[in-house]
Amino acid sequence: MPQLSMHSPVGDLTVTEEDGQIISLDWGWVPSEWQEETPLLLTAIEQLNDYFDAKRLEFDLPLNPPGSQFQKAVCSAMSAIPAGQTRSYGEIAKDLDSSAQAVGNACGLNPIPIIIPCHRVLAANREMGGFSGQGGVETKKKLLALENALPPQQQSLDL
């Protein structure tokens, strides 16, 4: 599977492609002998760089996140949250006729964070909740601040 790494403000990231679709975004850098510059991975890196440079807030990439049907449904619900907005685990759970805890667990298993914006999902009362990416909640806050979507009670905190 082709992979390509990049430096970002939230750490090194590696994007993986399979059958012409993005299947994962992981924190860390893969060895150069595993890196492959495919047109799709170059486009993904370009879009991520544009995102971090505040030139783009939405991604236009073919995605195929692995996981159960429920996990895919949660990924689809997260992908529908516009940049600059947030939803709660409970709101997504209601839409999927599920529990907030199940949605939270599926968010934590998101294989394509940032591109599938699990950082836009908050706990009740607009609290941060968790974030499975490198840096945890602090990274989530940085991503939300980049999108001008940081809840007011979090804006006074150091980023």
Results as ranks from 00 to 15, higher is better:
residue 115 I to N: 12
residue 111 P to L: 11
residue 122 L to F: 02
residue 111 P to A: 13
residue 116 I to Q: 07
residue 120 R to L: 01
residue 105 N to Y: 10
residue 113 P to D: 12
residue 103 V to T: 07
residue 124 A to Q: 11
residue 127 E to V: 02
residue 119 H to N: 05
residue 115 I to R: 12
residue 120 R to A: 04
residue 121 V to M: 05
residue 123 A to W: 12
residue 118 C to Y: 00
residue 103 V to M: 06
residue 115 I to W: 11
residue 107 C to Q: 03
residue 101 Q to H: 03
residue 117 P to Q: 10
residue 124 A to I: 06
residue 104 G to V: 02
residue 129 G to S: 09
residue 113 P to L: 15
residue 117 P to G: 09
residue 106 A to R: 06
residue 115 I to K: 10
residue 115 I to P: 04
residue 109 L to Q: 15
residue 120 R to C: 01
residue 106 A to W: 05
residue 106 A to T: 05
residue 100 A to K: 04
residue 126 R to Y: 03
residue 113 P to F: 14
residue 100 A to T: 01
residue 111 P to K: 11
residue 120 R to M: 02
residue 107 C to V: 15
residue 121 V to T: 02
residue 114 I to V: 15
residue 105 N to E: 09
residue 112 I to M: 12
residue 113 P to V: 14
residue 113 P to N: 13
residue 129 G to E: 10
residue 117 P to H: 08
residue 114 I to E: 06
residue 111 P to M: 12
residue 118 C to G: 15
residue 118 C to M: 03
residue 109 L to Y: 11
residue 109 L to A: 14
residue 109 L to V: 00
residue 101 Q to K: 06
residue 122 L to Y: 02
residue 102 A to T: 04
residue 100 A to R: 04
residue 103 V to Y: 04
residue 109 L to N: 15
residue 101 Q to F: 04
residue 110 N to S: 09
residue 117 P to N: 08
residue 113 P to A: 15
residue 129 G to A: 09
residue 124 A to R: 11
residue 128 M to L: 15
residue 105 N to W: 06
residue 101 Q to L: 08
residue 117 P to E: 09
residue 125 N to V: 01
residue 110 N to L: 11
residue 121 V to K: 05
residue 125 N to Y: 07
residue 125 N to D: 14
residue 122 L to E: 05
residue 122 L to V: 05
residue 103 V to Q: 06
residue 121 V to C: 03
residue 123 A to N: 13
residue 117 P to C: 07
residue 107 C to A: 13
residue 128 M to K: 02
residue 104 G to D: 05
residue 114 I to M: 09
residue 127 E to R: 14
residue 101 Q to W: 02
residue 110 N to P: 03
residue 115 I to Q: 13
residue 114 I to P: 03
residue 114 I to G: 07
residue 115 I to H: 10
residue 104 G to N: 12
residue 109 L to P: 00
residue 120 R to N: 01
residue 105 N to P: 00
residue 129 G to L: 09
residue 121 V to A: 04
residue 116 I to D: 07
residue 101 Q to G: 02
residue 107 C to H: 01
residue 103 V to C: 05
residue 122 L to C: 06
residue 121 V to I: 07
residue 108 G to W: 07
residue 121 V to F: 02
residue 116 I to S: 05
residue 102 A to Q: 14
residue 111 P to N: 10
residue 116 I to L: 15
residue 108 G to R: 09
residue 117 P to V: 06
residue 124 A to V: 08
residue 125 N to E: 13
residue 111 P to R: 12
residue 101 Q to R: 08
residue 102 A to E: 14
residue 126 R to A: 13
